[in-house]
Design a protein around this nucleic acid. Structure first.
Length: 565
RNA sequence: CGGGGUGUGGCGCAGUUUGGUAGCGCACAUGCUUUGGGAGCAUGGGGCCGGAGGUUCGAAUCCUCUCACCCCGACCA
């Protein structure tokens, strides 16, 4: 591309309404522009990057035996009602109506349509397995879009689906996709980890997330400093500490005026947070249930939801709690509360604890859980903490932050049952098909790459996703020798299939250098005064070194750099 | 959904408290100079101040409503 007469622009100032390194750089470099909250335009340069990422994903999908197709975004709402997901997605799904007021949705993900499509082919066990995928826009009405391309409401996802006769088959199909994902993220040069995760709105048996490690990540990755344990915080198992303190005398009320939170109590009573028996009331599928746990731990709603196999887990309003229990908000305790109580495994053996008295301004001390508290169930209902023991090897747990760029699910038969996707086995008995689903966010991956590959000057694209590989800075367009040399270099590189920008604008050198760095082109060639002695300058974006190279050697040097990248 | 903030030329902002009919930087156009790290000087073009209604002789500025965008919260009582 020669820059004159092309749709190319950069911004010198930060975008006022962008809140992350990647979104700022992508906007400033003229690759994307916000259209409305959480919705972006992709400009020519940005689209090239997107397509490059897409192509790498496509290659790996095809290599893994998947076939590409394309589904509509506009889907009859009925389909999501049949699978029960209209409810699960709830307000996150974009709804609209046609002229006859028939309800439609903009697809948030496409398990249902793929199951329906698969029915066209699947009759017998002989028709399985197979795997299909697409690149398509997904729509999710996020309550708060954030961080540019990272949390958006419309985005391009590669979604693939596998169809097998049984779980053993699914294991094989899953492994193929899993390996394909590793290949993709390895090729993209991303620093990522794979963690176990909650199956969430997808349902099913297993979910693993590919997480790009990054400070602005919205997911907490639980890692072990000794072994390869890696999990999303949502599902990381807490190994209950065998902590037992001395048994005290009978429970005794203590006056704790205006001390409602754990923080206020630790301050007021001079005790550590873990001496408190924290009592939280959740509304689990509409039922008020109390959870007791050590005061220094946070409840984990995903675990609670799983424990009750519940669709919704929410914190009720204070009035709801006081109307539905014998408790007083701020002074809640499990004794005589009048609702079901679930005890976290970590408190079962505890003896010397303080909890709420269900009475304003009073708590109770000397609580021995086994002696004083009647609980209905027990289990792991809290988040793991840094410094806890690794559930796998006993090593120490550390946290990292991650951006979820890919997710693989062993779905099982949830969708095939809901949508009647069945096959006949050797004995002519019907069975639901076993499905897997595999998502990969293209725009989010692009943003994650920028988060991991930028400096104060701008983006530094890895070679294989860079919109162009070479940027020729023509210092003085009015100089015949310089103009001719850069023109020749430009044609030679393009003829070799090396996408090149020739900056032939009537701009000062500084402007061109800055733009080349901002938009992150990996190789820069400067054609300037050196041309008199037959040399140009070669510089890689990620290095500070500038090398003088003879004009007739530049092309082969560039080829070497690309080959070795 | 709750709290806070912001909407003024393509981009980034001032002006709003104390109403008097819009300004700065960048970008843009023209000319001269300059020319290897975001040039200088001069001249100039471009905005019904998010929208609607109201108060007033007069509204970017005050009042009411509304839309959009951003931030914090929606997690522990």
């Amino acid at each position: 591309m020669k820059l004159i007469n092309q749709f190319f622009y950069t911004l010198r100032q930060e975008a006022a309404d962008e809140d992350s390194t990647s979104s700022n750089l992508l906007v400033r470099s003229g690759m994307i522009k916000k259209s409305s909250s959480g919705v972006y335009m992709f400009m020519p340069l940005g689209l090239r990057v997107l397509k490059n990422i897409e192509e790498i994903v496509r290659e790996e999908m095809v290599k893994a035996g998947s076939q590409e197709l394309l589904m509509p975004s506009l889907v009859h709402k009925e389909i999501y009602e049949k699978s029960g997901r209209a409810q699960i997605f709830g307000p996150n799904i974009f709804k609209l109506a046609d002229r006859y007021e028939r309800p439609y949705v903009l697809g948030p993900t496409h398990e249902e349509l793929f199951a329906i499509a698969a029915k066209m082919k699947v009759n017998s066990y002989k028709d399985l397995p197979f795997n299909i995928f697409q690149f398509q826009n997904k729509f999710r009405d996020e309550p708060r879009p954030r961080y540019g391309l990272i949390r958006v409401r419309e985005f391009i996802m590669k979604d693939a689906y596998s169809f097998d006769a049984d779980m053993e088959g699914l294991d094989v199909s899953y492994k193929k996709m899993f390996d394909a994902y590793k290949n993709v993220f390895d090729r993209l040069g991303l620093n990522y980890v794979i963690v176990k995760a909650d199956t969430g709105a997808m349902g099913g048996h297993l979910s693993e997330e590919f997480q790009a490690v990054c400070d602005i990540g919205e997911d907490i990755l639980v890692m072990c400093d000794e072994c390869d344990y890696a999990s999303n915080l949502e599902v990381a198992e807490v190994i209950a500490e065998a902590k037992t303190d001395e048994i005290q005398g009978a429970p005794e009320e203590i006056h704790t005026p205006n001390a409602r939170t754990i923080d206020e109590l630790t301050e007021f009573l001079g005790l550590t947070a873990d001496s408190f028996l924290k009592t939280l009331v959740y509304k689990v599928d509409g039922e008020l249930i109390a959870f007791i746990m050590p005061g220094d731990r946070h409840a984990n709603e995903v675990k609670i939801g799983k424990m009750f196999n519940a669709l919704t887990v929410e914190l009720p309003e204070p009035e709801e709690i006081e109307n539905g229990t014998n408790g007083v908000v701020g002074y809640m305790g499990p004794i005589g509360l009048g609702i079901k109580v679930v005890a976290d495994s970590a408190v079962l053996e505890r003896n010397d604890m303080v909890t709420g008295a269900n009475k304003k301004d009073y708590h109770v001390k000397n609580i021995s859980v086994s002696r004083d508290v009647k609980y209905d169930m027990t289990g792991d209902v809290t988040n793991i903490k840094e410094g806890d023991k690794c559930p796998k090897c006993g090593g120490e747990i550390v946290f990292k932050k991650g951006i979820e760029v890919g997710n693989t699910f062993k779905l099982g038969t949830k969708y095939s049952e809901a949508l009647d996707l069945e096959y006949a086995d050797q004995k002519n008995t019907l069975h639901p098909v076993v499905m897997g689903s595999y998502g990969l966010g293209i725009g989010r991956t692009m943003a994650a790459i920028v988060e991991q590959n930028s400096d104060e000057k701008g983006i530094a694209w890895p070679m294989n996703v860079a919109p162009y590989k070479v940027y020729i800075v023509l210092i003085r367009a009015s100089d015949e020798a310089q103009a001719q040399a850069s023109e020749k270099l430009y044609s030679e590189l393009n003829a070799l299939g090396i996408d090149t920008i020739l900056d032939d604008r009537d701009e000062r050198a500084g402007v061109k250098f800055n733009d080349a760095e901002l938009i992150g082109i990996p190789i820069r060639v400067t054609v300037g005064r050196g041309i008199a002695s037959g040399v140009v300058e070669l510089k890689e974006r990620k290095s500070d070194e500038v090398n003088e190279v003879a004009l007739d050697e530049v092309v082969s040097k560039i080829q070497d750099i690309i080959k070795n990248s």
